[in-house]
Design a protein around this nucleic acid. Structure first.
Lengths: 340, 340
DNA sequence: TTGTAAGCGTTATCAC
DNA sequence: GTGATAACGCTTACAA
């Protein structure tokens, strides 16, 4: 096992002082051309690389970004990470990813650990449990310590920090408007219960779209799924005997369950019923029929979040900079689950 | 902005020496009950947390694991990460994830950066480009420096390190055997070109299964997809006029394209043709018909890899321990794309 | 029982 | 042009 080369070792080997080596390697003009060459050659030959940890300690910054997300086995979040990574690497930052598994405790612990020097700032999408609990002390603490925090997707309004979100309400409106434009009149909604903020917002968009088009609101056409594991049956039950001509689902999975349920009722999508979903993932593309969706542009969200964070990190007097909220525009991806 | 509390600050505040504080906080018997209480109370009150970076520097270990994967937007890899994280966190390790994007250069750079103190060891699945290139200097270097390395999924035989793999050949055999058991005789294969080791191994399993069942090998029933982006058309072309009664695809996507192609030919899956796929993902579950697959147990792979690595990390004389190769057993998940 | 000092690997300041 | 020294935050012999 080869020992890692340090400045000290080089210095000893070349019989100069540590500071000379340090300066030579950083091309300081103080050092004579001669020694500089010699030292650099030696360092190169033995493949010297400075120790990041020592640098972090010295500079009091780690050049790394901590990302905390609710789940990793989730297409949308991986696209966000991908966007974060690209921008971060471009600007010389690493990324540490931790998952909260939607647990409040794990979110808190992860933040605490990373905040102890490992990370210069955070990009975070809060855990479901945190949203329910309404306990945000870990977030405020980190902010008070002067660590920049950027929240994305599932954000907390009361927390003062940069945010990157999509306009869920507008996206939902777009979806419903698309259905209306196709001539649909009896449009169902499959959403989640309201403490999940996106569920609430998308429901609101649905309502607004209806009213803007002078369509009557019919509460019996709205389903709020409580338990994801039971959702397939819930949806199937909900969809029977409602004679809708379209359904707007707040995610791919609900949309697919809806399509299955319709099929079982002998209805064809899109001939008899149109289905549109929020969230554009692998499933939407491949399913038959492929799904018309509202795209959330995860990669762009990640990229923007990283840019916001790095801007704060590299701005010395970011203290008095105001916080920004970037709204990513959603896009309609027209495929085969809505008729033309 | 609150400043982070350090031992030094506590010492000054309480008018004791730094080492007294350090010892007190670590419950050293050297310190009197009195001062210990006082110091601990103060630390607790002001929420002292030791600085990880300083600890890393001091202990010359970071208690973090570097994970390098080809892509993050990929269901299988996320399940592996999930497994790694669980075990790692349990044992007090963090996880840094980097993606190589299947680029050799990015893989090398990531490893170099992480190797400079950020990480105690690596878990890695090699980039496609690295496999093609056959240049493994970054791997051997890291090993020579005494950093344990565990490879998973896409491993390199020549490299001496712990490995976690699935038995691709056996898995493929299982798949084909399943088809044979269902009475299929003319079984096609949709694979990738051979430099991707899994493509090669799974192809081999296919061949072995055929010969074990005394089925004739027909080269025209084998497709090796070169360009993923073109695969849909390639597969569709390949499948026309072959009159197979079954297809084994080395991943979900190929299987789905196959099903689509069959449909367009007016054939029903599974009534007319059976389709089975390697890799069990989201798509397999939700697609209609749902896919019969060979499950790779990504989470378990990740967990095992993490266990192997941590074992090496915590074993002082791991130097002379032999390297292990753990083989994860694949499982057949029977769903609707194969007839009964 | 408490404190001093060296060291982890680096850089910046200042002296020679 | 080169080197000694202090500092980043922490632990740990060793001294007092």
């Amino acid at each position: 096992m080869k020992k890692r080369l340090t400045l000290k070792l080089i210095a000893k080997e070349l019989d100069v002082s540590i500071s000379t080596v340090s300066k030579a390697l950083r091309d300081s003009a103080e050092i004579s051309e001669d020694t500089r060459q010699k030292i650099k050659a030696f360092a190169k030959l033995y493949n010297y690389k400075p120790n990041n940890i020592a640098l972090s300690l010295k500079n009091r910054k780690s050049k790394t970004i901590g990302v905390i997300i609710p789940e990793i086995v989730h297409h949308y979040f991986t696209t966000v990470i991908s966007g974060i990574e690209q921008v971060a690497n471009e600007k010389g930052y690493h990324v540490i990813i931790c998952t909260s598994n939607n647990s409040f405790d794990k979110e808190v612990i992860n933040m605490e650990i990373l905040a102890n020097g490992s990370t210069d700032g955070f990009i975070l999408s809060v855990a479901k449990e945190t949203q329910q609990k309404g306990d945000y002390h870990h977030l405020t603490e980190v902010i008070e310590q002067g660590m920049p925090l950027v929240m994305f997707d599932r954000v907390i309004e009361e927390i003062n920090c940069d945010k990157v979100i999509i306009d869920d309400t507008l996206g939902a409106k777009k979806a419903v408007q698309h259905l209306v434009n196709l001539g649909c009149k009896k449009i169902g909604l499959i959403s989640t219960i309201d403490y999940v903020s996106v569920g609430k917002l998308r429901t609101q968009g649905y309502l607004e779209a209806l009213s803007e088009n002078n369509l009557e609101l019919n509460e019996s056409l709205i389903l709020k799924v409580d338990d994801f594991d039971q959702s397939e049956e819930e949806i199937s039950r909900f969809l029977s005997d409602k004679s809708m001509d379209a359904v707007f689902a707040v995610n791919e999975h609900f949309a697919i369950y809806a399509i299955k349920a319709f099929k079982e009722q002998g209805l064809d999508v899109p001939k008899d019923v149109s289905v549109i979903a929020f969230t554009d993932g692998e499933l939407s593309k491949r399913f038959i029929p492929s799904l018309t969706t509202i795209n959330q542009h995860g990669e762009e969200m990640g990229a923007q979040a990283a840019r916001l964070l790095i801007k704060k990190l590299e701005n010395d007097d970011s203290e008095d900079e105001p916080f920004e909220t970037i709204i990513i525009e959603t896009g309609l991806v027209e495929r085969n689950s809505t008729k033309r």
